[in-house]
Amino acid sequence: MAKYSYYPGNAARQSCLEVEDTIQPMSSSLGIQLIEMPGYSSDGGDVIKQSNKFLQLVLNARNFAIAEENGHDIITACASAHGNMSDALHRLQSDAGLLAEVNTTLEKTTGKIFSGEIQTHHLLHILVEDIGLDTIRSKVTNPLDMKVAGYYGSMMQREGFCAKDDPFNPSYFEQLIEALGGTPVDYQSKTASVGAPSLLTLDKPVMQMTAKVLSQAKAAGAQLLVSACTLSHANLDSYQNKARKHTGKDTNLPVIHLSELVAFALGYHVDRFAQLRTRALVIGG
């Protein structure tokens, strides 16, 4: 069984509990053991580093040190969390002086030290590269049987952050959707940002960015959009009416999380999946 230190991110145990509802049984079916990180804190999102980069690095280093105590790399289902952690990790692992400076503060305040040995992974990359599409395909009991568009976002689509997938023309989501019995839908803005970090501060541009992703996915025939980012999910789902009002574009599309997609196809929460399928058939592209 593959073991990972599980970092839920800022949303999975707050506003997006459906992620927590599905990632646990999904992981169990696929032989992934999610090991809790006792006392983990927020990674700081894209926000704390705006006022203090060093503070964000120390908070992340504390989480990394906890994962090291677990003895396992980190896994998360949120592209923003993965992007932020990967960025911090890269800075600490590539600059010994900075790592030493951060560790001085970390040890003084928490008694912990981060040696720089662990890595962080996104669930999507683990599913495709480590678990394998054949294994996933063999465990599907409730095929998606829908046209599904994957949303990667921009946070983790960067060289070194997205495993062996292409940062700018990725295909892991499409491969996974096919393995789960769905029909993958390709569309141009699948790695474009929807402006999640500025959801509360910029109205017009963020709604335009959100509408662009939703409308392009729907125009390409998607009945359902799946987000690899639990933060961007708020833009894509809760704000889609507002995005439509701002732009006049057709944004009406069911949006779910990656872990939900996999769990549904593996046979979990059949009632939720039935409700989702109905919505997709009624309003999807």
């Binding site: 894209d46 960025d87 921009s154 940062p167 474009a192 402006g195 970090p197 500025s198 541009p205 960015m209």
Partner: peptide, 14 residues
């Protein structure tokens, strides 16, 4: 600078 909705759209470009 606050009108840039997501700086990650820059940082991923090398």
């Amino acid at each position: 600078v606050w009108d840039e909705a997501d700086l990650s759209s820059l940082s991923r470009h090398g």
